[in-house]
Amino acid sequence: MPSLKTTRDNFSKAAIQALRDRAGNLCSQPSCQSPTIGADQSTTDGVTLIGVAAHIKAASPGGPRYDPHQSQAERGSVKNGIWLCSNCATLVDKSGGANFSVTTLNQWKFDAEKNSSDQLLFRNSRIRPDWLHRIHYAQYINVPRLSTILNIADSMKNLGLDSTKGFRGLGMQIAPVSGHLEASIATSSIKAIPIHDLMPPSDEIIGETISFDQRCYTKNGVDAGTTVAPSLLANFDPNKSPHFYFKISKIKIIFPYDPAWVTTSTAYCDFRSGSASFAGLGVVKRIDIKENQVFVSPVIVALPRNEFMQSWYGSR
């Protein structure tokens, strides 16, 4: 009877180097992102490395997420690896890897490598918009997406927000919910790229968080409490789907939105007004080069506090 395989399909030195470089020498765990290499102060030319090229699917039978259908070459390839700090590498393999799926680790890897690429492409453009600390009225807040960005999903549940209904039916409860979100945004470290800095558009900007602050045109806005067919939210129709837009040269920047996350009756009026001055953050979702269109999912649309509003609201 042939013996069970006991050797590991380890990474080559070249594969380890590639995984480390593609992650930008940072841990790929999204809530960690710790540097994994630095100078060894006890020497004049040495370094301290705390990074690990970890297997997504285990290197040998019985290991976390082992896949018997992989070939030896696949098991030791860059595709099957993720760069992590030593702590996170240990964490993902605890309990046989049951808490961290192959899908999760692949998403971490994709996001980490995209981030390292973006740092080269947009390193001087990603800034904190100066209006974020002076929000006095948020007209639209995409709570599910923002809760993920700010890691405040639990506090949103405690405030009684039902993500299936949005702000509808909250009544006076909208004030503490929106106030909590505005405060979380104001004190956060969110950074974004001004949309003008990403023109002309290319596929590299998909997934980027962008900021804008200008006059917009509104279309297909609805009354407070009115629901919109899910098909119009999932499949954009310029003649029926709620959206706002503006142009940069010949490029049309389009923001489809779900009215359930419009905050107040007054805000609904803003989205039906034909045009309004909006400032906000969004995530680039799709680019249509042929039609000169960029589609952005809005995260927050708000009015920054100006000098008049500053005197009205005070220094808070």
Results as ranks from 00 to 15, higher is better:
residue 260 A to K: 15
residue 199 M to K: 09
residue 214 Q to A: 07
residue 235 N to D: 12
residue 300 I to N: 02
residue 218 T to W: 07
residue 280 G to Q: 03
residue 189 S to P: 04
residue 172 M to A: 15
residue 301 V to G: 02
residue 250 K to F: 14
residue 302 A to W: 02
residue 243 H to L: 10
residue 252 K to H: 08
residue 162 D to P: 07
residue 200 P to E: 04
residue 224 A to P: 02
residue 232 L to I: 00
residue 300 I to T: 01
residue 288 D to E: 10
residue 226 T to H: 12
residue 294 V to R: 06
residue 169 G to V: 09
residue 259 P to F: 06
residue 248 I to C: 11
residue 214 Q to C: 13
residue 286 R to H: 15
residue 190 I to P: 05
residue 222 V to I: 09
residue 234 A to D: 15
residue 189 S to Q: 13
residue 273 S to C: 13
residue 266 T to D: 03
residue 202 S to P: 01
residue 258 D to H: 05
residue 225 G to H: 05
residue 249 S to K: 14
residue 263 T to K: 00
residue 270 D to F: 05
residue 211 S to P: 03
residue 287 I to Y: 10
residue 163 S to P: 05
residue 247 K to Y: 13
residue 169 G to H: 10
residue 278 F to A: 06
residue 233 L to V: 05
residue 281 L to Q: 08
residue 273 S to L: 08
residue 289 I to S: 15
residue 241 S to N: 14
residue 187 T to M: 02
residue 256 P to K: 13
residue 220 N to I: 07
residue 197 D to P: 03
residue 243 H to V: 08
residue 221 G to N: 02
residue 246 F to N: 04
residue 204 E to T: 06
residue 222 V to Q: 13
residue 176 P to V: 03
residue 224 A to M: 04
residue 161 L to C: 00
residue 189 S to Y: 05
residue 231 S to M: 09
residue 270 D to R: 12
residue 184 S to G: 07
residue 208 E to W: 08
residue 161 L to F: 09
residue 180 H to F: 14
residue 238 P to K: 13
residue 205 I to D: 03
residue 211 S to M: 07
